[in-house]
């Protein structure tokens, strides 16, 4: 009799927890993608630099963002990419000089540069990929706990996936609500990249931008923004 009772209560408890999780997931998915009403004057912003052409596109966006609104800015690039953070630093230094905010030491207050463990190298075997992906997710978790950004801007390739995944979990758990903006690379004319497809299909990105009209016709929830470059 007692066994039966505890069985029932465990079942009820599990049902309760599951329904809370499902409800919370539905709530997060419902509110993701819906415009916010920010009352604060500034939002901490995480910028994921994807190397090469991705970095160039991303920095062109950072260039036109209101710098006193999107602050502080956290730049993240893959550990194997030595160029991107350097380029971001050059941009931030030029901003400081242009606006004459102060000397170069002040850059630490408004911008931060971090490398992230890369989940998969080109040509890496799938077995070791599982291990490295796990490490990458843990590293993303650490960085996200440290920065807890309100805004995440990314444009592929895979570097941004662990970050966005952790951001979504943070939303569900209630640690931080970050709005994710994804800009598909200009190189994608007819089809989305794997990262883009994942973020689009799983509704992980709050807003999804494409640079060619053909893509927007295929993916209706995406916004067409024209060429960045």
């Amino acid at each position: 009799m007692e066994g039966f009772h505890s069985q029932v209560s465990v079942t009820i408890l599990i049902g309760f927890v599951v329904s809370i999780v499902v409800f919370r997931l539905a709530y997060v998915l419902y509110w993701s993608g819906r415009p916010l009403r920010t009352f604060s004057q500034r939002v901490s912003t995480l910028i994921v630099l994807g190397s090469g052409g991705h970095t160039a596109e991303m920095l062109s966006i950072v260039n036109v963002l209101e710098k006193d609104r999107f602050v502080p800015r956290f730049y993240i690039a893959a550990g194997t990419d030595n160029m991107s953070l350097q380029k971001a630093r050059v941009l931030e230094e030029s901003l400081i000089q242009k606006e004459e905010i102060g000397n170069k030491k002040d850059i630490e207050k408004i911008a931060c540069f971090e490398q992230i463990y890369r989940s998969r190298e080109v040509g890496q075997s799938y077995l070791t990929s599982i291990y490295t992906t796990l490490v990458a997710i843990l590293h993303a978790l650490w960085l996200m706990l440290k920065f807890r950004p309100e805004v995440i801007i990314c444009n592929g390739p895979g570097t941004c996936i662990p970050i966005c995944l952790v951001a979504f979990i943070f939303k569900v758990v209630g640690i931080r609500w970050s709005s994710i903006f994804y800009i598909e690379s200009i190189a994608r004319v007819k089809s989305l990249s794997l990262s883009g497809l994942l973020l689009y299909k799983l509704h992980l990105a709050d807003q999804f931008y494409v640079q060619w009209p053909q893509l927007q016709r295929k993916y209706q929830r995406a916004h067409y923004v024209g060429c960045l470059m």
Partner: peptide, 20 residues
């Protein structure tokens, strides 16, 4: 040459920042 302003505008609008 392209322009990143449309993206910046949409991000601002989404976050509820007033347009300038």
């Amino acid at each position: 040459s392209g322009d990143a302003l449309p993206v910046a505008k949409l991000i601002n609008k989404f976050l509820g920042f007033p347009a300038e």
